[in-house]
């Protein structure tokens, strides 16, 4: 479905992956899409910024809601462990012998429904790229809705603004919660996006 996505829209999709990884979350949720939209410099981002939504605040709100995964064991940890006679590299290589690369640093999960149609979807843990983070059903829904929004507006492409409209339309994810908790009205936001599109047209 990504063939109609503009370059910035594709960047949002990959940016969401980066945001999820940085927060050490196991799934890409709507909140990561929102954070990725805020990295962009297109219509979606300017509408959000005009509404007073900034990435630092959203990231803080997301952390407050779901936390971040545990800090990975970094060099400072390795040094500290060595000071009490524990060789982290040796432990890591033993673990990876059995469980595969990066096994000790698996991120934790966040927003994911406990039940529903998607729950039996196989997840890649050992196969494929070691750090592939799957989309949550809700985030997938947002991307589907962005396509629908584009069709509705008779646009032949899917841009960041459509992703934002999809996020608003979905309305129940953590992104929507963060926005409404910040005092935003989603309907107003939607109007702002449409106005910005009209101006750009």
């Amino acid at each position: 479905m990504f063939e109609r996505f503009t370059k910035p829209a594709r960047d949002v999709v990959t940016g969401a992956q980066i945001e999820a990884r940085e927060l050490r979350h196991r799934h890409i949720g709507t909140e990561h899409l929102l954070l990725a939209l805020l990295r962009d410099d297109g219509v979606a981002c300017s509408v959000l910024r005009d509404a007073g939504v900034y990435p630092e605040q959203v990231r803080a709100d997301v952390r407050a809601q779901v936390g971040a995964g545990p800090d990975p064991l970094g060099q400072a940890d390795a040094d500290a462990l060595l000071s009490i006679g524990i060789d982290l590299d040796a432990i890591r290589s033993k673990i990876e012998e059995t469980f595969g690369e990066g096994a000790l640093d698996q991120p934790h999960m966040c927003e994911e429904p406990r039940r529903g149609l998607f729950r039996r979807q196989p997840r890649q843990v050992h196969g494929g790229s070691p750090r592939h983070i799957p989309f949550s059903p809700r985030a997938k829904k947002v991307l589907e809705l962005s396509l629908r929004e584009a069709l509705h507006l008779k646009h032949s492409y899917i841009g960041t603004e459509h992703i934002l409209l999809g996020l608003i339309r979905e309305g129940n994810g953590l992104a929507a919660k963060v926005l409404t908790d910040a005092g935003l009205n989603l309907d107003d936001l939607r109007t702002h996006v449409l106005d910005a599109l009209d101006r750009a047209a």
């Binding site: 545990p70 800090d71 462990l81 469980f99």
Partner: peptide
């Protein structure tokens, strides 16, 4: 030298690292 350090920061940092290792291992 750090191993025999009496500086609590050094010792506590080791405890923190050990806890992180424990959590990772437990998860796995």
């Amino acid at each position: 030298a750090a191993a025999s350090s009496t500086d609590p920061r050094v010792g506590l940092r080791a405890v923190l690292a050990l806890r992180r290792l424990l959590e990772s291992l437990e998860t796995l």
